[in-house]
Amino acid sequence: MSVIKATNKLVTVQNQQLAQLIEAIGKVVLGKEAQTRLAIACLLARGHLLIEDLPGMGKTTLAQVIARVFGLEFQRVQFTSDLLPADILGSNIFERSQGKFVFHPGPIYAQLVLADEVNRATPKTQSALLEAMEEHQVTIEGETRPLPTPFFVIATQNPAHQIGTYPLPESQLDRFLLRVELGYPQQEFEKTLLKGSDRRDLLEDIEPVMSRRELLALQGQVKKVTVSDTLVEYVMDMVQKTRDSAHFVHGLSPRGAIALIRAAKAWALLHDRSFVVPEDVQQVFEAVSLHRLQSAGHSQTSSQEQIRSLLETTRVPD
């Protein structure tokens, strides 16, 4: 078709490759295909992922398996209330042997950082992490050190009502491109989970499916994905709906709208397409907007239901 030739010079994720990724992850994380796809899209879009759920739902496992399939260097930081910024970022320590201060990098110097239970740390520590995520570099005592590429943070968070937590403020939540919930596994998968071998053993068997170089190339392609005027109109309609809705304190900010398009682009690329269609936007909309929209708290329905009804009432342009 002549139409495609004009623009299609993009390297997209071939269907086969995606299937391999999903399959590899699916061996370890059972029955969470949708979340897996979103996590990969998030990685492609160079965003960071927030996983929100109760402990023991397999958040850590998901992070680990993603690190493995992409062959990424993995670090895990358990956030606690006494964790200090330096514990994450690293610090200059006087080396007596050399007679000078030597920088000891913290766990953030990894390609994939799992910030476990990020809401248990104090706001100060949280913001140190989030700043590093945003700026992709760390500045300690006037010296700026870049973080590795790719750099992908998966933060996990327990729902806010648990005791002894510091819920992330709205402005910080915005730094995460997507937010997913894992939820309880379906019955059949749970059975397998209980019967089968330890997840950690399985993890050892996973071979990388995609090289780091391939991943970086794909990340570079995301911004080349075409977004037509019609699609922008659709996104704007949808964003406007969140602003008009009485259910939310504020609607999506312009930054939120940009995030929506970025996530949709990654989703399109992930599905072997060089342009975004409304379906892409619909698929990522909940993950993009749920943590950005604060419920006004007077409505009977949950924010999730609100977002879904909003999706159902936004007309797809002809």
């Binding site: 139409v3 495609i4 075409t226 037509s228």
Partner: peptide
């Protein structure tokens, strides 16, 4: 498929398409 390409892939669809 043609519709989707015209609508979402190209910035300016050609008249013949």
């Amino acid at each position: 498929r043609l519709y989707i390409r015209l609508r979402y892939q190209t910035e300016a669809a050609r008249p013949e398409d």
